[in-house]
Structure formats: structure tokens, C-alpha cells
Design a protein around this nucleic acid. Structure first.
Lengths: 234, 234
DNA sequence: CTTTCTTAGTGTAAATGTAACACTAAGTTT
DNA sequence: AAACTTAGTGTTACATTTACACTAAGAAAG
């Protein structure tokens, strides 16, 4: 690599910088993560997290959104930085440092087109993922841990569930991520007391038993409580 | 910047990658953060976090430890990744992405030589820091928030206090970081019940009143409890 | 249309955990 | 010896959390 020609003391070779996205979604089967099939070497034919190299004119977060959309067709509004992986040998070609990002999407509402966008992007059940390229298995695991920790103190259920959902759906998501059963009455009491659910005048459709009431996330109320330092621990 | 000549599809210009360290210490006056005075442009003469560019053969964490030692003389064994800052304009010279690290050191035990190592490294009180170079004010703030959050659920007090300390010292550290007074009896009860303190047969020296018993951190016990998923919340 | 099945929806009491609180003990200084 | 400063110690009221079981509603099957 040549020396740069601007007045800059850093004249060594530079690592490349990439971004990778760990994107979770939820459908009837459970929790899913979005993967792509690599077309190029190294790891051609292998599954990997969507991602790519950061360009000079864009911030890390912008790069992550751009790569996610380019590779999977999925547009997300909110991404969170996860961790930066910089082991020397994590990419066999060259030194590549990657900044991993974390996203949650409502799979049921819209994001099905992502996978069907003629791209090789597939939602895999989180506990049935194939071996991934590079150190992406490790990155995915860090992402999954983040998800499980996050649900303890932030009401992220609403980012994964459809806009309208039942308390049962919400509880089952919590139970799955916390890996323990929750008492129905206590759960409902707590979540309703938080005051971030808006009760709708609708019930779920197409079930072979008594239909449950639908709720939606009361975002305005939530933002206000956040400002007041309210604790959303479950 | 020239194209690389290895078989690698990434042929654009690359951002530079640096590391920066937010290092906290504690002395009689309170909480301190370690800063250096820059000798080179940009921001020559300005205070900044110790840090520098990542070399091709070293991991991010290794780079952070190396830079910290080179610039301040301080050797740390444990560093934690804080956040990666990648705004396009954060460095006026060039595109530089920086991975920030977070360290805690026992100032009272040894680390005084760091500052006196003929280097321009100074421990500043955390709430009397000068304006810093680049976006280092922002990085410092993120580091400080991390510290304040961390103390809620991890017994990091022991990383900041001297090896032997009194319960009063420990409580005052908690009070300072949590920004609220704690009840002496409840605090002692809780911290002792955790079983990670070893009571010594010594008392503090040179105080003009009844001397308090000294304790030390029982690291082995702590590690065992961590494995069992014990909760160290205060 | 009656029965059966499945999930929705609701309150209370016991147990546990948290927070509030004040005095005696020990050592130093005057 | 008196005064000052911090060390060290338990109990009670209060709040929170957990455990727990029945009726209601609607759909499906007979």
C-alpha cells in the first residue's frame, strides 16, 4: 500500500473496515435471524451476516444500513452498535476490522418481501443456523446475547411483534428470550401498569377459541417515561 | 490512495483505524481520568485521550494496551471495549474510525509513576476536564456513563480502590458514582452478604479517630459466583 | 343445540426483599 | 478527663414479588 500524499503522519498500511448486521425478526415459528449466501470468495457459497466495506463518505451506521438494504432489500430505521471485531486473522484475505450492528424488525408486518426480493437472503431460526463465514458465528452469538439482555430492561418486544398483538404473544416472546415461564397474571399486571400499551377495540381473528384483545405499543407514552428515567425491567 | 495489489475485491480508499483509552482512577480527591497533551497537529497542545493507530499485526485490544503504555507509561491487564466512533468528520486530516476502550486502575497502589514518567500524562478530576481534541469529549462522556452503569451490577469498586480498603471507602465510591447517599448499615449488610470480601486482621492507619477494619476483594470467590450467574446489583 | 375444548381474563394472600432508623464502641486530640 | 470523630451493629415497617385457581367467551364437534 502506498504512502498517502496528504499531510498526515500515519503512513502505514491500513486495515479495511467493514460493517455487519445481526438482524432479528419474529414469526409464528419463533425468532429468526437474517443471513445471506455469499457469492464471492472467500467463503463463497457459505452463509454469512449481511455486511460490507465502509465507504469514505459515510458514517458506520449509514454503511450498515446501506449494506443491509443492498444485500437483503431490508430497510431499517433503527440500528444499534453491537461490538467491533478486530482479530488479525478474522479474514483470510487481509486485515479487516468489522463493526457489528444489531437490528430488530417486525417480520410479520412487512419484511417478508426482504427474503423474496430475488436476493439470497433467508430468515433462519436462531437455533438452526448453519456454520457462518469468517467469525460471524461469534458475532451472531454476541448479538443474541445482547437481545436476551436487552429484553430485561427495555420493552423491545414491540420492535419484533406486529403493530397489533395480544398479551399472550408478548408474554411468549418474553418467555422465549428469558428462557423461563412467566406467570400470566403477574405478567399482565406488570406490563399494563407500565402504561405503554394501548388497548384496542379489536380482538385477534381466526382462532378456534375465545379471541384475545389486541394491544399496540404506545410510543409517545413510552418516550415520555424514558425521559423520566422510568425502569422497564420485567 | 493506490489500489492494493493482492487478490482482494476491496479497491477503494480505506479509513484509518485508531484506538483510544478512557482510563479511570480513584484517589483521595475523587475520580480521575487519564489524559495526555498532544504534541502534533492537529490539536497540538490540546488535551486528548491516549490512543493511536492500529497496526496490521495486532488486535484492537493489543493496540489499545500498547498505545496506553507508550503514551502514559501505564500498563493495564484488563481493558473493555467501549464503543466505535466513525463519524466522517471526526478527524480533520482524514477519515479515522476509532475504537474506544475503557480501563480501571488502582491509582493509589502504583499508578502514580504513570503521570511522573516524564510523559505529558495527567490524571484530571472527571468533572474538571479541559476541552479535548477531536470528539474525545464525547468519548469520555460515554466512558463515564459506562462506569456509572457498570457499578450497578458489577463489583468494579475493587478495580479502583487500593488492595486493602475500608467499607467506608467502598461506600463512598458507590455513593459518588450512583450520585445518592446510601444507608451505612444496609450497604454493609448487602456487600458482606455477597461473600466477595475478605476481612483482614488489620485496620487503617493514621486517622484521627477510631480506625476502621480493612478488607480485600476475594477474587476467587467472586469468579465462582460469576459462573453461577450471581447478581451483584447494589 | 348441547357438549366439549381451548384460551382469555381476573384478585388475593403469603413470603420475600427493601428501606428507614439510633445508639454504643473505639481511638485521637485537646 | 472531656470532647470529638468515625466504626460498628439489629429490628421493624413497608413495598414488592411470587404463587396460585376459577369463570368467561368463543369455536368446533357431535
Amino acid at each position: 500500500m502506498s504512502k498517502s500524499n496528504h499531510p498526515f503522519c500515519y503512513e502505514y498500511a491500513r486495515p479495511a473496515v467493514s460493517v455487519d448486521c445481526v438482524t432479528f425478526g419474529l414469526d409464528e415459528d419463533g425468532l429468526k435471524v437474517l443471513l445471506i449466501e455469499r457469492k464471492l470468495e472467500p467463503f463463497a457459497g457459505c452463509w454469512a451476516l449481511p455486511g460490507g466495506f465502509v465507504e469514505m463518505h459515510e458514517s458506520l451506521e449509514t454503511a450498515a444500513k446501506r449494506e443491509l438494504e443492498e444485500e437483503t432489500g431490508l430497510k431499517v430505521e433503527y440500528l444499534e452498535q453491537l461490538f467491533t471485531f478486530g482479530d488479525v486473522q478474522r479474514d483470510p484475505r487481509d486485515r479487516v476490522i468489522t463493526v457489528a450492528y444489531f437490528a430488530l424488525v417486525k417480520l410479520t408486518d412487512h419484511a417478508v418481501e426482504a427474503a423474496s426480493d430475488a436476493r439470497q437472503a433467508v430468515w433462519f431460526p436462531v437455533d438452526e443456523t448453519p456454520d457462518l463465514a469468517f467469525d460471524h458465528d461469534q458475532i451472531l452469538q454476541v448479538g443474541f446475547e445482547r437481545l436476551r439482555n436487552k429484553i430485561r430492561y427495555q420493552p423491545i418486544g414491540f420492535d419484533l411483534l406486529p403493530k397489533k398483538f395480544t398479551l399472550r404473544q408478548l408474554q411468549q416472546l418474553y418467555e422465549h428470550l428469558l428462557r423461563r415461564p412467566l406467570d400470566k397474571r403477574n405478567f399482565r399486571k406488570r406490563i399494563l401498569e407500565m402504561g405503554i400499551l394501548q388497548e384496542l377495540d379489536e380482538v385477534e381473528q381466526g382462532v378456534a377459541h375465545r379471541a384475545a384483545r389486541l394491544y399496540r405499543f404506545h410510543e409517545r407514552q413510552y418516550n415520555q417515561l424514558v425521559k423520566q428515567g422510568f425502569n422497564f425491567e420485567i
